[in-house]
Simulated scan of single mutants.
Amino acid sequence: MATVTLKGNALNTIGELPKTGDKAPDFLLTATDLSTKSLTDFSGSRVVLNIFPSVDTGTCAQSVRQFNTEASELENTKVLCISKDLPFAQDRFCGAEGLDNVINLSDFKTGSFGKDYGVTFVDGPLEGLLSRSVVVLNEAGEVIYTEQVSETVDEPNYKAALEVLY
C-alpha cells in the first residue's frame, strides 16, 4: 500500500507501482472506440503510462496535453492515458482539445489495471479512482521509470519521465 495526499490529506492505494526492471503486468483496457487493448498491442514500442483520476480535472487534463506535446517528438513511443473515465468522456476531451498523439484507455470495466499496477485508491474522496502516476516501459515491456505523484493535485515530473527515453 502506498500513501499519497489530496490537498494535504492522506489517501492510500491498493498496492505499490511495479519496480524498475520488472516486466510490466499485461492489461485489458477499453479504448475510445470501445475496443479492448492490451499491453501486447504495443509490443516493440516504448510506452508511457500516464495514469490519473479523471480527465475532467485541471491537473489530469494538463498531463494529457503535456504528454501529447512531448509524444510528438519521440520516436517509437506510445503514450497511454489511463483513467476510469468512460471512453466517451476521454474521446470528447481529446476531440475538443485536438489531441492526437496520445491513446486514451479506460479501466472502468473491471478495475484490474488499477489493482495490478497498485494505483487504485482504497479510501478518501477519490476511492475507486486511479492515483496520479507515470510508468515508462522499454520496447521489451520492462519498467524503466516510475513515479507516483505524492500530492494528487500536482503534475508528474514530465522531464524525469521522458529523459529515460532519450
Rank of each mutant, 00 (worst) to 15 (best):
A2R: 12
T3P: 01
T5C: 01
K7T: 06
K7N: 13
A10V: 12
A10I: 08
L11E: 15
L11Q: 15
T13F: 06
E16N: 13
E16K: 14
L17R: 09
L17S: 05
T20F: 00
G21D: 04
D22E: 15
D22I: 09
A24T: 10
A24K: 09
L28H: 07
L29W: 06
T30F: 01
T30S: 09
A31Q: 10
T32M: 05
T36L: 07
S38P: 12
T40G: 01
T40Y: 10
T40I: 04
G44H: 09
V48I: 13
L49S: 12
I51A: 02
F52W: 02
F52K: 04
P53F: 06
S54I: 06
S54G: 13
V55Q: 11
D56N: 14
T57Y: 00
T57E: 12
G58N: 14
C60R: 08
Q62R: 15
V64E: 06
R65S: 03
F67I: 08
N68L: 01
E70A: 11
A71G: 01
S72E: 12
E75A: 11
N76V: 02
V79D: 04
S83T: 06
K84M: 14
L86M: 13
P87E: 03
D91E: 13
F93N: 04
F93A: 03
G95W: 04
A96C: 01
E97N: 02
N101C: 06
I103W: 00
N104L: 11
F108A: 11
T110W: 05
T110M: 06
T110N: 10
S112K: 13
G114M: 05
F121L: 12
V122N: 05
G124D: 07
G124F: 14
P125I: 15
L126H: 09
L126Y: 14
E127I: 11
E127W: 00
E127A: 14
L129D: 03
S133A: 07
V134H: 05
V135M: 08
V136P: 15
V136S: 07
E139D: 15
E139L: 08
A140M: 04
G141H: 04
V143M: 12
V143N: 12
I144D: 10
Y145G: 07
E147Y: 00
V149D: 04
S150I: 13
E151W: 03
E151I: 06
D154K: 13
P156F: 02
A161C: 07
L162C: 14
L162I: 15
E163K: 14
Y166N: 10
Y166L: 05
Y166T: 10
